[in-house]
Amino acid sequence: MKSAGLAPKQSFVDTILDIRGLSKTYPGRGNAPPVTALDNVDLQIRKGEIFALLGPNGAGKTTLIGAVCGMVRPTGGSVSAFGHDMAKDWRRMRSRIGLVPQELSVDIFEKVHRSVAYSRGLFGKPADPARIEEVLRTLSLWDKRDSQLRALSGGMKRRVLIAKALAHDPDLLFLDEPTAGVDVELRRDMWQTIGRLREQGVTVILTTHYIEEAEEMADRVGVISKGRILLVDDKHEMMKRLGRTEASFTLAAPLDSLPAALADYPVTLEEGGRSIVFRGGDGSGLGKKQVAEIARILVNGGIEFDGIDQHESSLEDIFVRLVDEKGAKAA
């Protein structure tokens, strides 16, 4: 449908997954009270992006994925993907989604090759040995194709789970903590694999505890805590908006008050006048510039200092701050 003049920046065509008002309350078992794992979640995922869902343990990440992929029955809200509504068109919707679960849940007596081929068939795709070989080769599993899964290491098992999820060529891939318990080298490998998938046009939604991972790979980041989405933003935007530079000048001699020349800068005098601490910037480099200016002002003003400790806040700091602040507000 064409709408003359009114061209929304984010057209619906670009939204590959549309989650609205999604809620999930697990009934309490025995004496346990019910747990609200998802609380009115709205989330739109764009076609072709890598979206990282960050959140502490128990935030509801796995539940969110489960609700979209069919392991969890939502207690409210709606989900649609590729324009198919999950309530009505779940078959067509599911056939294009791949899932790598958080747990290493596999039939350990099955052989790698067979397990991956099974996944393709289960999703209704005709057998395609060449495609299976390709998937196994990309994930360096080809040599292990005849091994039983129980003979593989944990990291290798996770690769098999990825291979299984890719076997039916999904357009949307969920990775629930793809690099949990994976060593550094394998993690780099995994990032490359995910990068390649993006190049092929696959939309990826991943959850992770490693902020490094979100920083490295994601286009957009969503922060979830206690079942609520606290923030969704472009990664760079978020860093810019919430990023901070912190710099501490250790002074040679304590000061009684801040020099007047620093009045315009976000600085405080700390440790009984022994250090000047700068907290500011916006993640775009402004902070660094200002720290340099402050250094110059101190030198020109004859205030001696022995050292500068400078630190750019990472996504991790932002995340911790967000969860603390907003979490406290919500409670």
């Binding site: 992929c69 056939s95 899932l99 679960p101 849940s105 289960l122 999703f123 299984k164």
Partner: peptide
């Protein structure tokens, strides 16, 4: 029961299978 026990039933549940 086995896939329920091992958790591998996730695959069946996420598949376009009724």
């Amino acid at each position: 029961y086995m896939p329920r026990f091992t958790g591998s039933i996730y695959e069946l549940l996420s598949a376009p299978v009724g």
